[in-house]
């Protein structure tokens, strides 16, 4: 999308509309909302940054909104409504997970809805900088441990406490869903089919079932010189085996080129599991982590296939979507490496 298209896509988002939405926070007029700008994003998800300027304070905020209803986009795109996503952040915060504070939830019938407004946290989010800049050397040395501890805290949230829209499927149901997607997208990859067959045959029995972030990886984490500052992007949250969140963080696609550091390109398995064990009192074994790395690699392949579908259907006919669709072979090569010696 060009910057003109980005700006045009969110016609409803104005300083006036935001000031009305934030009246309870003390916004009295449009000039309380300043430096409004759209950050990058797809056709379905809009992320805006702005400052809420009151008499004695200036607060950096984020608006997340989705002008389309869930279901209007491809099937592998999140089905979690933004209003339910917003309800997860306080639950995670109560367990000690660092997340933005949700200031107001925008219902679908409101002019800016569905969506929510939250605090804009400081910290670096670009994986390239987190993995390479000297200023994050100390942070990198214990980030894997912090991630393990943070996930253990999140995993205390039981399914019974969640909004009913949060997906809660068995592993077998999810693998069936993956097969349906492979079928829908034309069964083009024998490697994807091989991997899915392997995942069915080697499915672990999970002793725990809890809320998962679902996209807990470098790129969705804010980091400062001391380490983890905030966990963002909760749109793929769902219930499942806690080992999934740990294995996902180790997926090669999320190591951003630093393949020798299995945890996000910055840490080792032992650090991640030690951090998890220190909080949870237990940790998954490496074989189960490996299983979820395979699941993650296939999932990335399905995301790429979905991007091709969004492009071809015209739902989001942008160069970005078409180009990500060419990254299918990354998932295939990751899968063949992961399954080497295990078939």
């Amino acid at each position: 999308m060009s910057s003109e298209q980005l700006a045009a896509a969110g016609d409803a988002v104005t300083s006036e509309a935001l000031a009305i939405a934030l009246a309870a926070q003390g916004a009295e007029a449009a000039d309380c909302v300043q430096q409004l700008r759209r950050l990058s994003g797809g056709a379905n998800m809009e992320t805006w940054a702005f400052e809420l300027v009151l008499e004695n304070s200036t607060q950096p905020l984020i608006l997340r909104r989705s002008p389309l209803q869930p279901g209007q986009m491809g099937a592998a795109v999140s089905q979690l409504p933004l209003t339910a996503e917003a309800a997860l952040l306080p639950l995670a915060a109560a367990e000690g997970v660092p997340v933005p504070e949700v200031l107001c939830i925008l219902r679908p019938e409101e002019p800016l809805g569905p969506g929510y407004i939250m605090t804009r946290e400081r910290g670096e989010g670009l994986p390239g900088r987190i993995l390479a800049d000297d200023r994050y050397t100390a942070a990198r040395s214990h980030l894997a441990e912090q991630c393990g501890a943070t996930l253990a805290r999140l995993h205390r949230v039981t399914p019974a406490r969640l909004p009913r829209e949060v997906p809660n499927q068995t592993l077998a149901e999810r693998l069936d869903g993956h097969q349906q997607l492979l079928d829908r997208y034309g069964n083009a990859s024998p490697v994807h089919q091989l991997a899915l067959n392997w995942l069915r045959k080697h499915a672990p029995t999970a002793e725990h079932h809890c809320l998962l972030h679902g996209d807990f990886r470098n790129g969705n984490l804010l980091v400062d010189e001391q380490g983890l500052v905030a966990v963002l992007d909760w749109e793929l949250a769902h219930c499942g085996d806690p080992a999934e969140d740990l294995g996902y963080l180790c997926g090669n696609v999320w190591r951003f080129g630093y393949s020798d550091k299995p945890v996000g390109g910055f840490g080792d398995y032992a650090q991640l599991l030690a951090g998890y064990r220190a909080v949870a009192g237990w940790a998954p074994d490496l074989e189960t982590i490996h299983y979820w790395e395979v699941f993650c690699a296939l999932g990335w392949g399905l995301v790429c296939l979905t991007m091709i579908d969004l492009y071809r259907s015209g739902a989001d006919a942008t160069l970005e979507r078409a180009a990500v669709g060419r990254r299918v072979s990354e998932s295939e090569l990751d899968l063949l490496l992961l399954l080497d010696g295990k078939l």
Partner: peptide, 17 residues
């Protein structure tokens, strides 16, 4: 897959590996 990767993204980390 190696042949496809050589077309799509020969700089992907797993290609060298």
């Amino acid at each position: 897959t190696l042949r496809q990767m050589a077309i799509d993204n020969p700089r992907y980390s797993a290609f060298k590996q």
